[in-house]
Amino acid sequence: MNIVCCIKQVPDTATVIKIDPEEKHIQREGITYIVSPYDEFAVEEALQIKEKLGDTTVTVVTMGPERAKEALRQCFAMGADEGYHLVDDAFDDSDTYATATTLAAAIKKIDFDLIICGKHAVDGDTSQVGAQVAELLDIPQVSMIMKEEINDDKKTAVVNRQLEGGEEVLEVQLPSLWTCQKGLNEPRYPTLKGIMGTKKKPITDFTVSDLGLSPEEVGLLGSKTDVSKMYPPPPRLPGRIVEGEPEEAVKELAKLLREEAKVI
């Protein structure tokens, strides 16, 4: 089987994000980057399938600037076999639609039986790219999977997806696209040997022209949405303790909730 995982390099969740003066981007200086945690679930699941079925190739695909190669190599260290890097200045400022267009064009060039994405990227947070890629490739999709089992025919699979308060069990054809929910698996540590071996694994670069796309279809030009302003959430005000005898304090609290906080 050939499994393609879409992975995104995102700022480390521990980093304090600052917004640049133009209010369209986050500031890039001093940020450390990681593979989006949900995409690690995708790679882990692909590796578990490979261990179970044997004779499987796990391919990781990312769109991003030059530094995103490091994210591909992090996945190699976990055990992924090969990588594709969609890298071109023309891809800058892609929205989810342009991102999905680019990813879908690349995946068409790769032989695949299954695509696994994260449920959402922890920076952009839209949860749209996986679904859009599936639509553009015209294949079935199952979002937020919690469990999967590929049937012996390797043409269908049984997949559990999370619902509010329960799980839904689906049978789905392959090729299809799944997105991963937290709880699906525990991503493994890369081994030190895996880290040593990453330089030997192949990364193929794809530019706009390699994908047979025009610059108008990708990046800012190919985007259907436009970021007009980016701003941090307002700082949380400190809590207040209402003092006094319980009876008085409760009255005061009710008054504050109605008149100041306007929640009741």
Partner: peptide, 15 residues
């Protein structure tokens, strides 16, 4: 070097 940096990251995470 990048590979040593990844090993440093892994060690940090393990700790």
């Amino acid at each position: 070097p990048e590979d040593i940096k990844h090993m440093q990251d892994l060690t940090r995470r393990f700790v």
